[in-house]
Design a protein around this nucleic acid. Structure first.
Length: 114
DNA sequence: GTATTGACAGACG
DNA sequence: GCGTCTGCCAATA
């Protein structure tokens, strides 16, 4: 049961809303998804994220812009590759949030509501 | 019901 | 920028 899948759904939706070439932190996703302070839940939700949804979990990073996975890990490398493919520059398992950090605009938020 | 863990965040040094 | 500690909440044992 994982928490209400509704929330997980919302999380996935939010993650899917991240514009290409940008990245968001767990806290950011959690907040936008309606789970303030439950950043951990986001990670778990992404854990269940079905591939059918094509959830760009690779665009979700830590608050500091560091990848959620340890360097050298398959997922981390994959994530890096995908991000770079999207145009995001990843160095040393890190992304410059100052430049690639997703700053949700009203239009973006509106697409999540309802 | 209690203890441990986790794809985390923020504060400190 | 990095390591450590604390706080938060849910899942798992």
């Amino acid at each position: 049961m994982a928490i209400n899948q509704q929330k997980a759904q919302q999380i996935w939706q939010t993650v899917c809303s991240i514009p290409k070439g940008k990245v968001a932190s767990y806290g950011q996703i959690a907040d936008l998804a309606g789970l303030p302070g439950r950043a951990r839940m986001v990670g778990k939700a992404l854990g269940y994220a079905p591939e059918d949804m094509n959830v760009p979990w690779f665009r979700v990073l830590r608050s500091n812009g560091q990848l959620a996975f340890p360097s050298g890990s398959e997922s981390a490398e994959k994530q890096k590759g995908l991000l770079q493919e999207e145009g995001v520059v990843v160095l040393n398992n890190r992304v410059k949030l100052k430049q690639f950090g997703w700053q949700p605009e009203l239009t973006e938020l509106l697409s999540l509501k309802y």
